[in-house]
């Protein structure tokens, strides 16, 4: 395949970036999108040019590191896949592919396609956990019976890999799908209910502090989420927040 890549190049967080065109040839349709970027970088290195910086780790769709905005969509045109799971067979020979970093004030660009998503870490640290006494008397997990449908919903919410596609694709840069999933995965389980009031309040407060936008229910996040996290999680978070706020 022959492609024309238009990629956002930015030296560092402070300098202004711009789109740069890179014609590339001999791309196999069997390559993953990141392998295609690898091929581009090999070409750039041979030409003594700076390779394109991009985030990646597991390359099997579970680490949540890859974060490209491809042809106007987070993780590209395919559904329920991360950028590393996107294959070049989804594109046509001669296509122009626009590649940008995830854009949000809370996700500042560090270099080229690499963005700082530590705002998500801080939201998680604000309450996305269950405090466990590890002094030797840890209870057997199976000792608490949990309804199958609740366990399934909690598991679905826990499938969120925190990649930030929801923020990137939302016209308001809202992080509510991410926070909704993290709140839900605990709110649905008995172990999470103990700290539920504090958790949702603290996580939402941190989310607001990080400068994410407000959710206007466009539903774009649900469509672009590589893990298919449902909007039901945002509704659940809203209910949790309302009830927590009324409790004080």
């Amino acid at each position: 395949m022959k492609l024309n890549l238009k990629i956002w190049r930015q030296k560092n967080a402070t300098e202004k970036g711009s789109m740069v065109s890179y014609p590339i040839d001999n791309i196999s349709p069997d390559m993953s999108f990141l392998e295609m970027i690898d091929a581009l970088n090999n070409m750039l290195i041979l030409r003594n040019e700076e390779p394109v910086a991009f985030d990646h780790d597991c390359r099997e769709g579970i680490c949540g590191m890859c974060s490209m905005f491809i042809n106007g969509e987070a993780h590209g045109p395919d559904r329920n896949v991360t950028t590393c799971q996107l294959h070049m067979r989804k594109f046509k020979d001669g296509d122009t592919i626009t590649i940008e970093p995830f854009r949000a004030k809370a996700f500042p660009v560090i270099r080229d396609l690499v963005v700082d998503r530590s705002s998500f870490d801080r939201v998680q640290q604000a309450g996305g956990f269950v405090s466990i006494n590890t002094s030797g008397n840890t209870q057997d997990a199976n000792a608490i019976p949990i309804e199958k449908n609740k366990a399934d919903l909690a598991f679905d919410a826990a499938a969120c890999i925190g990649c930030g596609a929801c923020v990137a694709t939302c016209k308001n840069s809202s992080a509510m799908l991410f926070v909704g999933a993290k709140v839900s995965q605990y709110a649905l389980l008995p172990q999470g209910k103990v700290e539920a009031t504090q958790r949702v309040q603290n996580m939402v407060a941190q989310m607001d502090l990080e400068g994410f936008g407000n959710c206007t229910n466009t539903g774009a996040c649900e469509v672009e989420c590589p893990k298919g996290i449902s909007l039901e999680n945002i509704a659940r978070m809203n209910r949790e927040y309302l009830s927590a706020s009324l409790k004080g």
Partner: peptide, 19 residues
């Protein structure tokens, strides 16, 4: 507030694809 949450916009943004 929502406009301020994204200081640099996208070159290409396919809103119709998902909303």
């Amino acid at each position: 507030q929502n406009r301020n949450a994204r200081s640099v916009g996208y070159v290409q943004f396919k809103g119709n694809a998902n909303s």
